[in-house]
Write a protein that binds this DNA or RNA. Structure first.
Lengths: 336, 336
DNA sequence: CTGAAAGCGCTTACAG
DNA sequence: CTGAAAGCGCTTACAG
């Protein structure tokens, strides 16, 4: 690679010091009162040599890299990918770049990512936490590293986050099923200690209780993400063909819903006649299913944008804590 | 943020020069023959102070950032997101990070991204080109910036790329339709100058010709990405309810296929009885459609991995050009 | 209005 | 075996 042209090259060409070049190219010619002709010459030389400032050098000096680190569960998951896109756009507006990493819901991987990205001197993080990541949160706090949590957070730790009001979102969904007249309502959620998921289950139970609807113990199912298909097939079988079959199902994530719908397809069950369905998150699959699926939609754009804005505030030294529990939208289709 | 601990801090604590600290911490104590006790003390101090090297400073010195820039059409598109994940993992194995950007198929945006990332001194690019990006390719070549194209490439420019053998992939798909006995076969592709897309159309025409099958002019449709839904609805209507309805459809991308399937759902058409379908790329929607969709699957993992490997070779100064046209897999389901 | 110089945190010939 | 020093490409007080 050709050696890049540096400030020095311009300075030499024009016959001034690098200081002047720096001032002019950074628009400080007024406050530094650089001579007008000199400024013009400098700009001309910069253009002629096609000068591109070395951000690494700037960063070393300034301590700012204008890069934010995004840690999601899996960038290949549409939820993460969609958020990433929003964050990219919002960051770009503020001249920030995004480097990303996937934790696979694994706290150790997340730790590694944080360490690596910190060494790269990123200015701050947007993180979708894994389970057992309390130590990470504490570390970031203690070292005063700006960060904003998205999607997941721990209710008892006082940090900035932009998340969903999962309780309300799930409650509204289950309530919709109830109001449609369904009584035997099951739910499938991840087996996870993550608060935002537990809130969905809590809302399900609360809604049934509030409406005095009976909840059989084996209607509230937890599946493991690392063997999702097997767990889903087994539990769908039980829920739909067991002794006490449900007539409606709340599927608490996009991947859970997709697997559930696949099962329904295979068994040629009719929705909503044989079983009503309500899903969480968005996926093309909801629209494409022969019976478009009612689902709880998260305000992705808002989550992404607000997270970036909150992070940039922190980076700028503003200590204000941002804690948002945004509202979901219940998108009613034909499945219940 | 607390001032980070630097080499100097360790040097002071131990009472040696930063040179020694650098040697030891970079595993050069043998070739530099650093005294063993000193080395031990240095490592102890580094651990005690929780020293984290500043990669920015290293980068400034070495000219390497161990970061690769990934430019895709849209990180929110599952195709891009899946590739991004593979690239992330492969890059991580080699201690590289990934910063990404979405071009939205817009050459100017792609240019901006390239410029910005170059200023950030990334070591090389993996790029899914837009149309009209010849200038970008030339620029990167002239400046000897390592890059590898994925998915798309221009056949007449001699650069490294990892792509699909789109002609063969599409040919196999159309041939499958023919062998299933379909005669009235339509195709919907993007209206685009991109070579990889044009190859798909060329293969479609060639296959029909090879089998002496008549091709009506209005069976080979091009839609515009920026008004995809409208175009799809209109053309699906014509293709299926027009004067010369088709009995099979080749939908040449995941988004095209999803829109086509939605139309079919709305019209309550039966697949494959009313119309047989073959899709391109992968999407959950193919499995979830009531009639699982036969599709042409790209070897995503291989594309991503090979692209990273090819790029790292270039970064390491190996001039060997990598040009791969990988084979797709025809995944036969029930839709044709 | 301008230049010489220090410094960001590293690495690495060079001298001893 | 070890240290002093230069340098990567910038920015910015300081002195004039």
């Amino acid at each position: 690679m050709k050696r890049k042209v540096s400030l020095k090259d311009i300075a030499q060409k024009v016959g001034v010091s690098t200081a002047l070049v720096s001032y002019v190219l950074n628009g400080q010619e007024r406050e530094k009162r650089v001579g007008e002709e000199v400024a013009i010459k400098i700009r001309a030389a910069a253009k002629e040599l096609n000068y591109q400032p070395n951000q690494i050098a700037k960063s070393l000096k300034s301590g700012k890299t204008h890069t934010i680190g995004l840690i999601v569960a899996d960038i290949a998951n549409p939820f993460s990918a969609n958020i990433a896109r929003i964050i990219e756009d919002e960051a770009k507006q503020h001249k920030y770049n995004v480097v990303f990493g996937s934790s696979d819901e694994n706290a150790d991987k997340a730790w590694d990512l944080i360490k690596v990205l910190l060494n790269r001197q990123i200015d701050g993080f947007i993180i979708a936490l894994t389970e057992h990541a309390e130590e990470q949160v504490r570390y970031l706090q203690e070292h005063h590293i700006p960060f904003v949590l998205i999607d997941r957070y721990y209710p008892d730790i006082e940090v900035s986050y932009v998340a969903l009001d999962n309780f309300k979102a799930a409650y509204d969904g289950v309530e919709h099923l109830i109001q449609k007249g369904y009584k035997r309502i099951g739910m499938i959620n991840y087996n996870s200690g993550l608060y935002h998921l537990q809130e969905r289950t809590r809302a399900y139970r609360q809604a049934l209780q509030d409406y005095n609807i009976n909840l059989e113990a084996d209607w509230c199912i937890e599946v493991n993400e690392d063997r999702l298909k097997e767990d889903m097939d087994r539990h769908m079988q039980e829920l739909l063909y067991g002794e006490q079959p449900v007539e409606a199902l709340f599927l608490a994530s996009n991947k859970i819903a997709i697997n559930g719908l696949k099962f329904i397809n295979e068994k040629k069950l009719r929705v909503p006649e044989d079983v009503a369905i309500i899903g969480f998150d968005q996926t093309d699959a909801y629209d494409l299913f022969y019976c478009p699926v009612t689902h709880i939609r998260q305000p992705m754009a808002e989550i992404g944008r607000k997270a970036v804005q909150a992070l940039l505030q922190l980076i700028d030294g503003n200590q204000a804590r941002t804690q948002l529990n945004l509202e979901a939208t219940l998108v009613v289709k034909s499945s219940c």
